[in-house]
Amino acid sequence: SAVVMEEGSPGEVPVLVEPPGLEDVEAALGMDRRTDAYSRSSSVSSQEEKSLHAEELVGRGIPIERVVSSEGGRPSVDLSFQPSQPLSKSSSSPELQTLQDILGDPGDKADVGRLSPEVKARSQSGTLDGESAAWSASGEDSRGQPEGPLPSSSPRSPSGLRPRGYTISDSAPSRRGKRVERDALKSRATASNAEKVPGINPSFVFLQLYHSPFFGDESNKPILLPNESQSFERSVQLLDQIPSYDTHKIAVLYVGEGQSNSELAILSNEHGSYRYTEFLTGLGRLIELKDCQPDKVYLGGLDVCGEDGQFTYCWHDDIMQAVFHIATLMPTKDVDKHRCDKKRHLGNDFVSIVYNDSGEDFKLGTIKGQFNFVHVIVTPLDYECNLVSLQCRKDMEGLVDTSVAKIVSDRNLPFVARQMALHANMASQVHHSRSNPTDIYPSKWIARLRHIKRLRQRICEEAAYSNPSLPLVHPPSHSKAPAQTPAEPTPGYEVGQRKRLISSVEDFTEFV
């Protein structure tokens, strides 16, 4: 048969007729292969192709491409040299491709048809291009793949890379869960390890502090508590009631339409708007009261037996805890006409967050109470924005700035309102402590230090009264110190430094 060459192609190359033996071998191979691939376009007849790359030819070592076609129900084999250009295909004639002069020997084609199974398996396991790669995943090629499931790999992101949580363990979102698992493993320790309690022994800490320079003076030496005195035992138990972190309780009120001037209507609300609910979820963490331990979680007086509701929101960081007394989460009882059960919590909070959804101005004093010092007013606006402002009593104007209003988005509203309420509550605590000038409020841990110092002074006084020969370590507060001759004046800087060093040991009130 003659071949018409394309323009620009090399000279004529004689194409030899395939021997009958080659056709029989390739026909047997075509019957084993699956003929249901995917359909081509209507211009080209339905056909199945599979590209198999052999590394070497037997005796020649030339890479070839073998295409199996099922045109007219008769499979045909096409061998081509890759750099050459194939002729145009037609549905009426068999596929013809040019070969190099080196394939002119018909014996070479017979060798190609009689490829060993080793070469076929190696060509099938190679990388296939384009559409033949999808075909190689079918059941027909499963014989050339190794048996057994593939090893499982770690989760992959859409980009093909490992997620960040699997790369950096410290930033993994499941870090707290692993800590819980470690605690569970520790709890399952053997009885021999049960006595080993991690941490620092208080006796060891005391020993280090006792021999430090801070205890060089007799006034700073630790003293032993009497065991037989019940009054001192009660004082030590009272110390446990003062937490070592700051605590805040903040009221949250929802004002519906037409309720801006009605205290009873505001306290009777059992739910609010959708934006109000989203605002609550951002204030803190939802907790169930019956599962809380009052000595570990500050509840601000809420009952854990269901008297004040089942849930509330709280927030904490390293040095403070805040609980929100939310009116809509507290039960509304029919027998309580004046809502006294709610007001006994909300009316005693220094700061209230008022979500004013009424469309009218909310005035300070609508919720009557002796300790309502500051109101954080949240007014929802259009386009997911809110107006946040402050209202306070006249005696609080020096501590709280009420002249600045803020426009905040719904997303950042819980954070801004919480921070403003916490700052206002700190100012309210300082303002409330002014009624007792001898006990200015600095912080909870300073209050613990003052309680310890008062307890020490009482013990020293009782020891001096029981044994008059012992001198008083600290003179009583009601006694007057003996007159001392004025010492020589020293520079102001040295006096300030000495006073600062003494105050650092005794108390921190002056620095606050």
Rank of each mutant, 00 (worst) to 15 (best):
E461G: 14
L390C: 10
R411L: 07
G256M: 03
G496N: 09
K333T: 13
S433R: 06
Y245L: 14
I242K: 08
L224F: 13
D303N: 13
Q429C: 09
N356Y: 00
Y355D: 00
T490A: 11
W445Y: 06
G359N: 04
K343L: 15
L299V: 12
D334G: 11
R285E: 15
L472D: 15
T438G: 07
F232I: 13
E270S: 08
G300E: 14
Q497M: 10
S466H: 12
V236W: 07
K499C: 11
H325A: 04
N356H: 01
V430R: 02
L346N: 05
F508W: 11
N436I: 07
V335C: 12
L472M: 13
G256Q: 03
A251P: 02
L239N: 09
V400A: 04
L455P: 07
D361C: 05
Q484K: 10
C340K: 15
D439R: 08
H325E: 08
Q241D: 14
I367W: 06
L238K: 15
P489Q: 09
S260A: 13
K363G: 06
L364Q: 14
R500Q: 14
F415I: 05
L283K: 00
Y465P: 07
I353A: 00
A421Y: 01
N436R: 07
D357S: 01
T485D: 11
S231Y: 15
A322L: 13
Q457V: 05
L224T: 13
A417H: 00
V354Q: 00
D382T: 04
F373I: 06
K290W: 04
D334Q: 12
N386K: 01
L381G: 03
G359S: 05
L449C: 07
P468C: 11
V376P: 00
I250N: 01
S469I: 11
S435M: 10
R344I: 10
Y441I: 12
V408T: 03
S403L: 04
R344A: 10
Q391H: 07
T402W: 04
V252P: 00
V473F: 13
K342M: 06
E510K: 08
V236L: 12
G306H: 10
S409G: 05
V378W: 00
S229A: 10
K368L: 08
C292F: 11
H271Q: 10
P226L: 14
W445N: 13
G365F: 04
E510Y: 06
C305W: 07
I446G: 11
F350A: 03
R456K: 12
N261V: 04
V408G: 00
E307W: 06
E510D: 13
F371T: 09
R456H: 12
S268H: 05
I319F: 13
Y441M: 14
A265S: 07
N425R: 01
C314T: 14
N412H: 07
I319Y: 11
F279V: 00
K337P: 15
S433H: 14
P468T: 09
Q370D: 14
L329V: 04
T490M: 10
G398H: 11
S403N: 11
H431T: 07
K444Y: 08
V430C: 08
Y276A: 01
T332V: 09
Y254M: 00
T366V: 13
L225W: 11
D291H: 13
F508H: 14
D401P: 07
L289R: 15
S469Q: 15
D361P: 09
V236F: 10
T509D: 11
D318T: 08
V400L: 11
I446M: 07
Q230C: 12
S403Q: 11
K290T: 13
Q321N: 07
L267T: 04
V374F: 11
D246A: 05
H431V: 15
D334V: 12
M420I: 07
S352F: 07
G369E: 06
F324E: 02
W445H: 13
S229K: 07
Y441R: 10
T332P: 06
S358V: 01
M420K: 02
D361I: 06
Y254F: 04
E488N: 10
W445L: 07
I407T: 06
Y441D: 14
Q310N: 08
H248Y: 12
E307L: 12
R275N: 00
E397M: 12
P475W: 11
N261F: 04
F362N: 02
I266K: 03
I287P: 10
E263D: 05
I319Q: 06
Q457W: 08
F232D: 09
Q457Y: 08
E307C: 09
Y245T: 06
K337T: 13
I440F: 13
P331C: 06
I223T: 09
M426N: 01
K333N: 10
E360V: 11
P482I: 14
A405N: 07
D303Q: 10
E288W: 13
V376D: 01
V304F: 14
S409Y: 01
D295Y: 04
T281P: 03
G347N: 15
T281M: 10
Q293E: 07
F362E: 00
L239A: 09
A421V: 01
D341Q: 15
G492E: 10
V376A: 01
K394V: 14
G306A: 09
L289H: 14
Y254T: 00
D361A: 07
V388T: 01
L239F: 06
R448Q: 14
G300A: 13
S219L: 08
N467F: 13
A447M: 09
H271W: 15
L302F: 11
Y441V: 14
L239E: 13
A327K: 04
